[in-house]
Amino acid sequence: DEDSERELEKLRKNNASKEEIKEVLKRLGFSEDEAKKLAEKAG
C-alpha cells in the first residue's frame, strides 16, 4: 500500500541496509520470504 511504498522510498534514499529494509517490511506485515525478496529488489 501507499504507506509502505513511502517507507521503502525513504529507506532507499537513506541507503538503508537490506537488513533494515527487511525489518521494516516485516513490521508492515510481510512474511520473512516476501520481505527478503523486496529488500533484495530495493537494495
Rank of each mutant, 00 (worst) to 15 (best):
D1L: 12
D1I: 12
D1E: 10
D1K: 14
D1Y: 12
D1Q: 13
D1A: 11
D1H: 13
D1F: 14
E2Q: 11
E2P: 12
E2I: 13
D3L: 12
D3A: 14
D3R: 10
S4T: 15
S4D: 08
S4A: 14
S4V: 15
E5N: 10
E5M: 14
E5Y: 13
E5S: 11
R6W: 09
R6H: 09
R6A: 10
R6M: 07
R6C: 13
E7N: 02
E7Q: 09
L8N: 01
L8E: 03
L8D: 01
L8F: 04
L8H: 02
L8M: 05
L8S: 01
L8K: 01
E9V: 06
E9I: 07
E9S: 07
K10T: 12
K10L: 11
K10I: 13
K10A: 10
L11D: 02
L11M: 04
L11E: 02
L11V: 03
R12K: 11
R12S: 07
R12C: 15
R12E: 06
R12L: 14
K13A: 12
K13F: 10
N14H: 07
N14E: 10
N14W: 07
N14V: 07
N14Q: 12
N14P: 05
N14K: 08
N14S: 09
N15I: 02
N15T: 04
A16N: 03
A16S: 05
A16T: 05
A16R: 01
A16I: 06
A16L: 11
A16P: 03
A16D: 02
S17H: 03
S17L: 08
S17D: 06
S17V: 02
S17Y: 06
S17R: 05
K18H: 08
K18Y: 14
K18G: 06
E19H: 08
E19I: 04
E19C: 10
E19V: 04
E20M: 11
E20S: 05
E20F: 08
E20D: 07
E20L: 09
E20A: 09
I21P: 00
I21D: 01
I21W: 10
I21G: 00
I21N: 00
K22T: 14
E23L: 06
E23V: 02
E23R: 06
E23S: 06
E23D: 09
E23G: 02
V24A: 14
V24G: 03
V24Q: 07
V24L: 13
V24H: 13
L25M: 04
L25N: 00
L25D: 01
L25Q: 00
L25Y: 05
K26N: 06
K26I: 15
R27F: 08
R27G: 13
R27H: 08
L28W: 04
L28Q: 04
L28D: 02
L28N: 02
L28G: 02
L28A: 03
G29N: 02
G29M: 00
G29K: 01
G29E: 03
G29H: 00
F30H: 03
F30E: 01
F30M: 07
F30C: 09
F30T: 01
F30K: 03
S31T: 11
S31P: 06
S31R: 02
S31W: 01
E32R: 02
E32P: 03
E32M: 02
E32D: 10
E32S: 03
E32L: 02
E32Y: 04
E32H: 02
D33P: 05
D33K: 08
D33Q: 09
D33G: 05
D33V: 07
D33A: 11
D33I: 10
E34T: 06
E34Y: 05
E34C: 13
E34G: 03
E34D: 09
E34M: 07
A35E: 01
A35N: 00
A35T: 02
A35F: 04
A35G: 02
K36D: 15
K36E: 15
K37T: 08
K37F: 11
K37L: 12
K37H: 11
K37E: 09
K37N: 08
L38K: 04
L38T: 02
L38I: 13
L38V: 06
L38F: 09
L38G: 03
L38M: 10
A39D: 01
A39F: 06
A39C: 15
A39M: 13
A39V: 10
A39L: 12
A39I: 12
E40K: 02
E40L: 04
E40W: 04
K41A: 14
A42V: 14
A42Q: 09
A42W: 15
A42F: 15
G43T: 13
G43M: 12
G43Y: 15
